[in-house]
Design a protein around this nucleic acid. Structure first.
Lengths: 334, 334
DNA sequence: ACGGCGTGGTGTATCGATAAACACACCGTA
DNA sequence: TACGGTGTGTTTATCGATACACCACGCCGT
């Protein structure tokens, strides 16, 4: 590998001058600059970023900590962040936390280790207190789904509002028994599933009804398609009567639709289904999936903006944002 | 940030001794080691990987260069690699090349820049000669879909065989006009699309027929769902007669199925459809997608194995592997 | 003639970790 | 007493890039 020293020797100047040429420092004469540039070209020199990083104390890399990288929602998120960060010349490294507190803490400690310039943390297992203990100067944006310490920037999806919108849509379309797929029985950590459950209840109350807890179907395991499919099938076979399902994620909604089809039920004629996330795939499955759009692009743009601000050293007031949500009506509801 | 120096000062020894304790070098007395470990604990010291990297000349990261990170196939690939590499303590960075030669060359030059320990390159735009020029000691595994210089390790999907299998399946199920969606008119770069087109032709010849070039529908743009859907719709509306489609990827197959449905055609009764990639989603859409399984897990495992070998400095003969493929029969074919 | 100043460029120390050579006390043995 | 070996630590140099202080030189005005 060729280094500054090689270039310096080849062009008969000091390493410092070469460094200055590379960084566009104006105290280099035109002739010298010419000579150095030619040498750089001849030798095919490229800066060693590791060295530059050590010197500057930055890494040019941002970590995205997610529970599972292979879930389509996080896949789309990761791709969007990769693109958004490239515009600022930074790289994204994905850390999988396995949705556990330990995994997330490890990732954060790794974060210091790797000298990431910033961290985007999709907190699932971490609690308020865990995050509260973190050094407050770490450029960290919480994509948290639950209440988190105010000293950190934070962007939440409009979970309650989105779930309310979804449920209200089903009710408005004549549904009488709106099951909630993937909810939580009792509010526990205030996380995403809690919030969407809350929206489901709120929508019922808004029309003077009460959500029926027997229609609350618990998360069958990471909300993946295959277990979701089996779970809804078992629930309905066991006599659960429903004419609509609000599935807490698009991924599980696709599983739910598959499960209903296994039973010979038609969507939306027999059972209406609505999801949450607005995955690209939802537009092309059959029936096309009605869903809630959580404005992911907006979330990504804001997260990058906030992170850039922190990475520039701004220690101003933390921002707490909630994404706008909207209903995307397609064929899986009437 | 606390450094070795701080720990050394706190425990009254030299930095080198601290370093030795951390790295388990056995030339440290038990009492001293105790003292140092306590200091490390007290100060919450963690090694600075950037410095270690500069010193050791490695980076602990591997780059995966793909055309588009947001395509589900590459998403699944990236997640699988992230997991596989974590087992060896390494990180994955995803570089998007935009499927262009320039993008891929930039990524490779970046690769040197970033001092990646290795590169997994899904070559689309690069030609034989471009890759041939690369320094042969770069730990590089080509996930290339086309013929590449023999000095590099290379894993190809069983494209020809898979496409043959897919087409043969359709023919065996009584299809008379098997369209190829996303093929290439004339072999150009020997890439994935050429190879799968070749398999489509081969399957026809194997049963004494000749593939009809009017049934060859060109790639409408990155094989994404929305353009695929529109393209198949236009083709059929314009009078193209077909009773089966081999879509070159699952992603486009899902678009094709949606497009056919737009026209009121039933899958598989009116038109059978088969894909290629065995994406997880294919199992849960309706009709469930018949497809070719390219053994992705096998590919990932082999790629990591080969890369590890190179990163260990092995300069032995390069391996050229082809993944085994198999037919996954589901509901989109009869 | 001489101090002052701008231009162009060079040494030196530093970021944090580590390999390799070196220092030194202590022991047994000839 | 002299000498080699062993067990523990320390010093020095280095990875490659860069911040900062400093220096050489020519030109100016007084």
């Amino acid at each position: 590998m060729t280094t500054l020293k090689d270039v310096a020797r080849a062009s008969g100047v000091s390493v410092m001058t070469v460094s200055n040429v590379i960084n566009g420092v104006p105290r280099v004469g035109a002739a010298t600059r010419e000579r150095v540039l030619r040498a750089i070209d001849d030798l095919g020199y490229e800066v060693n970023l590791t060295a530059r990083r050590l010197r500057s104390g930055t890494s040019g890399t941002v970590a995205l900590v997610v529970p599972r990288a292979d879930h389509p929602y996080f896949g789309e998120l990761a791709a969007a962040f990769t693109t958004a960060l490239r515009a600022t010349g930074r790289h994204l490294v994905i850390e999988q936390s396995g949705a556990s507190k330990e995994g997330e803490l490890t990732a954060l400690s790794q974060a210091r280790l790797q000298m990431y310039d910033g961290v985007l943390l999709s907190a699932v297992g971490l609690q308020y207190a865990d995050v509260d203990r973190l050094q407050p100067d770490l450029p960290l944006v919480l994509l948290g789904e639950k209440p988190m310490p105010p000293q950190f920037d934070q962007i939440q999806l409009g979970n309650v509002e989105g779930a309310r919108l979804a449920t209200a849509h089903l009710l408005a379309r004549g549904a009488r028994s709106v099951a909630l797929f993937g909810g939580t029985a009792a509010p526990s950590d205030g996380g995403m599933q809690d919030q969407r459950t809350q929206g489901w209840r709120a929508a019922h109350e808004a029309v003077g009804r009460t959500a029926d807890d027997r229609l609350l179907i618990l998360d069958p395991g990471d909300l993946e398609m295959a277990p979701s499919r089996k779970t809804i099938r078992d629930a309905v076979s066991n006599g659960l009567e429903l004419d609509a399902v609000f599935a807490i994620t698009d991924q599980s909604a696709i599983g739910v639709i598959a499960g209903l089809r296994d039973l010979g039920l038609r969507v939306p004629q027999d059972v209406q289904v609505i999801g949450f996330d607005n995955l690209e795939i939802g537009e092309h499955v059959w029936p096309e999936l009605t869903t809630i759009d959580p404005s992911n692009d907006w979330l990504v743009a804001q997260a990058v903006r906030l992170l850039e601000r922190r990475m520039r050293g701004d220690h101003g007031e933390a921002e707490h944002l909630v994404t706008p949500v909207s209903l995307v009506e397609r064929g899986s509801t009437r």
